[in-house]
Every structure is written in structure tokens, then in C-alpha cells.
Nucleic acid binder design. Structure first.
Lengths: 184, 184
DNA sequence: GTCTATAAAGCGATAGAC
DNA sequence: GTCTATCGCTTTATAGAC
């Protein structure tokens, strides 16, 4: 609901209706609207951590990120949630502002760690800047999601991110992943 | 107001207060809220067309786009408007949905035209795909704006877009612009 | 744990005076 | 062209019965 309507416009009544209870019943489980939003964000982060957190830093994690983007295409609600909310929450007074800033810091750290590891292993072009790359990768990701939601340019988020990474890797990501796999 | 709060949350009363008139007074000039939104969007597009429309297709227009991004850093209200609104308007029922789809089509066309011209003049790497590049450039642009608004990763939208273009040009954009300038 | 009822506030829009 | 007043509706949140 927050994804489809944004936080401010999505109403507790609608959420309650979807859950099959009354609005007052919903507020029994979550004391107020912000608490519900926090719970939604926390739950989604748990899911995301499970899917990408297992991979070890390096090309393996980069592959997991692309794979995560690919799977996300089947969860449009989640994409909407973060596209709408990350824009809405740029306002400092927005209840999710602190969360969003923390989240960007968190995912940037993970990407920087993996890009640095990839560079140390000679997979990344030596002139590449991991921090800039990480920032640009997630920027591209976010922007492509908006185009995908708007159904313009017939875009694939995962393909776009993968193509962007390939630009900076010495070989295409898929090849690198196959090689790393074969070494085991 | 629509930029800071989003369309749904920004109220006519607040807009009217900023304009120094009453809410009913505001509705005398714009029959309803959607009409006000349309007027805001139209006015901003007029301004944007003036600034980039003069340049001829090719590296000149690419330079104008980067310059436009650079100047936008001094108009945070406008950036917020489009960041929040383009996410919010991904919902098909949103009053600005059709506008946003048209707008993406429009700016993509302009960029594709210029990237194709640049390729024909040998400024672009021959393997580059103008449509994909245009889509990715604006995706990167949108995503960097969100990071900039959130004040994470200490990002410059214009630098990011320029750096991305440089990846696909045979020489850095600045050098190409200097050369084209010198030829006159 | 779930409900109905309702409070208190804000919303877009309209009516009509000046 | 601007105002006050107000309608009708929706919002979050609370009170209290069951």
C-alpha cells in the first residue's frame, strides 16, 4: 500500500481492508502509522539481507545484486515502495528520512566492499573508483526502476545494472562468475 | 509545494498561503488541484526547453544537458518536484502519469537524436547504443538526484552524468566541446 | 484480539458577499 | 479578484464494549 500510494496517501483503512480487519484492529498491532511503516521497512530489509548477505565480497556479491534486481521484477509492490518512498523521504521531516539515509549508506558500503575486493583480484579496471561506482550503480538502479514502473523505454533494471558493471569490469560479469565458479 | 510534499500531500491551503491569498482565491485562478499541477509542469517545461532547446543535436546538446544539470543544483525545489512526482506518478491513476510518460519519451527522443548525431560524427564509440545510453543517462540522472536530495555519498549530479557520458565518448565531453568550438 | 463509535483535524470544492 | 463561511468527505487516533 505504501508502495502503490506513497506513505502519506496510503490510508490505514485500506491497509486494514487488505488484511481483512478493521482500521481499529490494525492499530491494535501497530500503535500508529509510523510504526507500521517502520515494520514494513524492517521486514523487507530482512528479506533483502537473506538473499544477498550470504555471498562473499567480490564479483560473487555483484552477481547476487544483479540477480536480486532480476528477481525484483516479480515483486512490483516492493519496487514501488522504494521508488516512491525514497523520493518522498528526501524531505528531512519525513518519518522515513533517517531510515533511507541509513539504507543508502548501508548498501553503498556493501557495494564498495565488493567492488574493492573485485579490484584487488584484478577483476575491475584499475582506474575505477569503488565509491563513485557504487553510488552510480544504485542511482542507475533507482532511475531504471522508475522508467520500468512508468513502462517507458521498455527497460530491464537487471540488464541495465549488469551492463553498467560490465563497462567497468575487465570481462563481462557472467564470464567472471563462471571462472570463479570453476576455480572451486 | 508539490515538490516538497508530493502532489497528494501538498495542500491548496499551503500553496495559497505561500502566494499570500486564501485557498478560495487560489481556486479562482485554477479551477481545481489538477489544473494547478498541470500549470506548474507546463511552466517548468517551457523553462527547460528554452535552456536546452537552442543547442543543435550532437555533442553541443549533450553539453547543454550537463550544463542544465549543473544549474539545477541551484534550484532544489525543481529537483524535488520531479524526483517526488516522477516516482509518485508511476501509479497509472495518478493525475500526472500521462504527463510523465510523455516527458520521458520527449527527453529520450532528444537525447537519442543527439547521441546518434555524435556517433555519426565519430564522437561516440561505434558499439554504443543511443537508445540504451539515453535511457541509462536519465536513469542515472534521476537516481543521483535522489542521493543528492538525501545528502548521501556527497554526490554531484552534473559530474556523475558527465562522467557517464565520457565513458562512451571517444574523448571527454569537455575536449570534444572545445574542438567543436574551435572549428567555427 | 477485534469490533463499533466517535473525536479532532485536514482535505478539496462550492456558494455567495463585496 | 478576493474574501468568509461552509459542505461533505477522509484522515489518524482514541474510547470502550465484547
Amino acid at each position: 500500500m505504501f508502495g502503490a500510494q506513497g506513505y502519506e496517501s496510503g490510508s490505514l483503512r485500506e491497509v486494514a481492508a487488505l488484511a481483512g480487519i478493521s482500521q481499529a484492529g490494525l492499530l491494535h498491532h501497530f500503535p500508529n502509522k509510523v510504526a507500521l511503516l517502520s515494520a514494513v521497512l524492517e521486514r523487507r530489509d530482512e528479506g533483502a539481507s537473506e538473499e544477498t548477505g550470504r555471498a562473499e565480497p567480490g564479483v560473487h556479491t555483484l552477481g547476487a545484486l544483479v540477480e536480486y534486481a532480476r528477481q525484483s521484477a516479480f515483486k512490483p509492490g516492493e519496487i514501488e515502495l522504494f521508488a516512491v518512498l525514497s523520493a518522498e523521504a528526501t524531505r528531512p521531516e519525513h518519518p522515513a528520512n533517517a531510515y533511507m539515509r541509513r539504507r543508502y549508506q548501508w548498501i553503498t558500503d556493501i557495494a564498495v566492499e565488493s567492488l574493492s575486493a573485485a579490484r584487488d583480484q584484478g577483476h575491475l579496471r584499475p582506474d575505477a573508483d569503488p565509491l563513485r561506482l557504487a553510488s552510480q550503480m544504485f542511482a542507475l538502479w533507482d532511475g531504471l526502476q522508475i522508467q520500468w514502473l512508468l513502462k517507458v523505454n521498455d527497460v530491464s533494471v537487471a540488464d541495465g545494472v549488469e551492463h553498467f558493471l560490465d563497462l567497468h569490469l575487465v570481462k563481462p560479469l557472467r564470464e567472471l562468475l563462471r571462472e570463479v565458479q570453476a576455480q572451486r
